Amino acid sequence: MWTGATFRLAGDHGGSAAAVTRLLGLKPSHEFEAGDRVGRRSGAVRRGSLWLLSSDLPPGGELADHLHRLLDRLEPKADALWQLTGQGYVADWFCLAASHATEHAIELDRPLLRRLLAIPGDLLLDVMGDDD
């Protein structure tokens, strides 16, 4: 089983990743600004900013543990996060789970789902096999 979770804020309407960092007082795992080059070789540039906070847990644990870790950091900033989405930032929880077809079930219990609902953002689940 391979799992991970990242909370993402995209500023497609003029918001910057630096402004998110200042308002939240949290250091992101990664941040990108509008106008930054996409990749090293591409001539493309980003149209909007992107602020990412990853759980930073080892990838072998439960998806719920990754989400709890992020929530522990983000819940104290809930009002600021709602303010950012009110300013046009788009929030989501990007989650990855890779497993053999019948190996593992992902459990997101009601208390965890309640915590997620208190913070803006849709829950995106990228579920796949972990075959090479």
Rank of each mutant, 00 (worst) to 15 (best):
G25S: 02
L26C: 05
K27L: 11
K27P: 03
S29Y: 11
H30L: 12
H30N: 13
E31W: 12
F32Y: 15
F32D: 14
E33A: 06
E33W: 08
A34R: 10
A34Y: 01
A34D: 06
A34L: 03
D36S: 05
R37I: 02
R40T: 13
R40G: 15
R41W: 15
S42H: 14
S42D: 15
G43M: 07
A44C: 08
V45D: 07
V45N: 05
R46E: 08
R46W: 11
R47I: 03
G48S: 07
L50N: 04
W51P: 09
W51Y: 11
S54F: 00
S54I: 00
S55V: 03
S55I: 02
S55Q: 03
D56N: 13
D56L: 12
D56V: 01
L57R: 10
P58S: 09
P58V: 05
P59D: 13
P59G: 02
G60Y: 11
G61L: 08
G61V: 04
E62D: 15
L63H: 08
L63Q: 03
L63R: 04
A64K: 04
D65T: 04
L67H: 02
L67S: 07
L70M: 07
L74Y: 06
L74D: 04
E75G: 00
E75A: 14
P76K: 05
P76H: 08
P76I: 00
K77H: 13
K77A: 09
A78L: 00
D79I: 00
A80M: 01
A80R: 11
A80Q: 12
W82F: 12
W82T: 10
W82M: 00
W82L: 04
W82V: 00
Q83Y: 09
Q83W: 10
L84P: 02
L84G: 07
L84R: 06
T85P: 03
G86V: 03
Q87S: 12
G88I: 08
Y89A: 06
V90C: 10
V90H: 12
A91R: 02
D92H: 14
W93R: 08
W93I: 03
L96C: 11
A97P: 01
A97Q: 13
